[in-house]
Amino acid sequence: MEKKTSVVKLFMIPIVMFGFGYLMVPIYDVFCDITGINGKTGRVSASQAASLEKQQERTIKVEFTSTVNQDGSWDFAPDMPTMVVHPGEPYTTTFTARNKLDEQLISQSVPSVAPSKAAAHFNKTECFCFVEQKFAAFEERAMPLTFIIDPDIPEDVDIVTLSYTLFTKPHNG
């Protein structure tokens, strides 16, 4: 009898651990979100953004870069390479993408912020990366992005780089 129960218990371990493997996915996301380790940026509502204290005396330089993952089906670049901004104030800029193929494509852009300690303080109220962007054949379009830097951003950060990687969604339509 005793043997039977211990074997059942033992079989529970692999079942639980199989589940734990899957549990690592949300844990990973939450962990990266809290620590900003993965360069994941924050998202705030416009009203939250409006309530932030504006720091006119402090300036931070924001650099924009872009990458297209793998294939040559896109042109993708920031319209302004850099901006000088004040923490607590919202700014809007655009990235322009062009579908180089004679077919409809769906893009998904993934942001990353460096240095990572700035990532948690780099918030967006609106971003083309929030949703998939559908492009008709050869369509070219500027995609907007509104961001606001949290005044709590560490003192020693004076340059923040925001990078976007553009992926083609593999399953069209």
Partner: peptide, 29 residues
């Protein structure tokens, strides 16, 4: 007992990423 199932989970995620349109490891998704 504790780690082989984690490997099984990881490779299953690879399998579903490739054939069942999940995006565990695909940045686009």
């Amino acid at each position: 007992i504790a780690t082989m199932p984690v490997l099984a989970g990881a490779v299953t995620m690879l399998l579903t990423d490739k054939y069942f349109a999940t995006s565990f490891f695909s940045a686009a998704g």
